[in-house]
Amino acid sequence: MTPRRTSASATRRLAPAAAGVSRLRRLLGPLGSHLVLIFFAFTALAPLALVAINTLKTHREVVRSPLAVPGEPHWDNFELAWRYGQFSRGFVNSALLSGTAVVTVLVCATLAGYVLARRRVRHWRAVTIYFMLAMTVPIQLFLFPLYYFFARVLGLLGSLYGVGVVLAALNMPLAVFLMRAFFLAVPEQLEEAARIDGANTVRVLWSVLIPPVRPGLITVAVIVGLQAWNEFLITRTFLGQESITATLGLLSMNGTFTDNMSVMMAGTLLMIVPPLLFFVLVQRYFIEGLISGALKG
């Protein structure tokens, strides 16, 4: 039963005279809150809409009024943005980078999450606290020696796979806590039954425990994938020009297209649409991941 309905029926029972006031409030309450909610929805979306309506204009039209609807559509703005933002390379590289990070995190965090959830090792408490602290260490604390090691010792500067693994390591604590929470929700009897039948640990994990935690795997993949796709500091520092990502491609356009703002907006829209579409498709897993990461992690 929703609280609103309860309050109305309770009021009617207690004081018939107040029923009129209550009916008014019942009508105005939702309206008022919708107005406030819509106002905030507008502030969230308006800047994105502003980008969209300026993509098909000429630069002169943008300068005259960024709010006006475009006259004749200039589709070639997208063509120019695609070329100068190097998006055909950028999107492939971003996908490789995020893919590497996601696969690495899924393998490592599943194994670790299982061990921590079942407390299979004596030092589970120390490991848990280590991951909690690792989650909040500033990148600046390890960036400089890591860069030195990564670039000079391993010679991995510009390597998408190398940077993907680094991003996996940064997201590891959150992923481990998420997987731990999902494993905790699986009844232990399921595992015991398989063990009695003689299955070893790898088999138990693979064929008994993975199926029930599949939503967890998707959640982790979605969160880490978006995180890696959007990452800036590590990508910018560790990847050179030869392995430009979509993000770095857009950044390289910034400042050189001040005289052609509509092309700049077309490039920006190219960066807005894919993550938004992805988010709409997987929003259930994404929101679940945010919530359990913050409340249960």
Partner: peptide, 24 residues
């Protein structure tokens, strides 16, 4: 509403920063 509010949150900081720098 939740999905709309999370819109800017799922975009790259680079995208958001460039959007505000250029068109606002």
């Amino acid at each position: 509403y939740q999905m709309i509010y999370l819109g800017p949150y799922v975009l790259a900081p680079v995208t958001n920063a460039i959007l505000w720098l250029n068109i606002i």
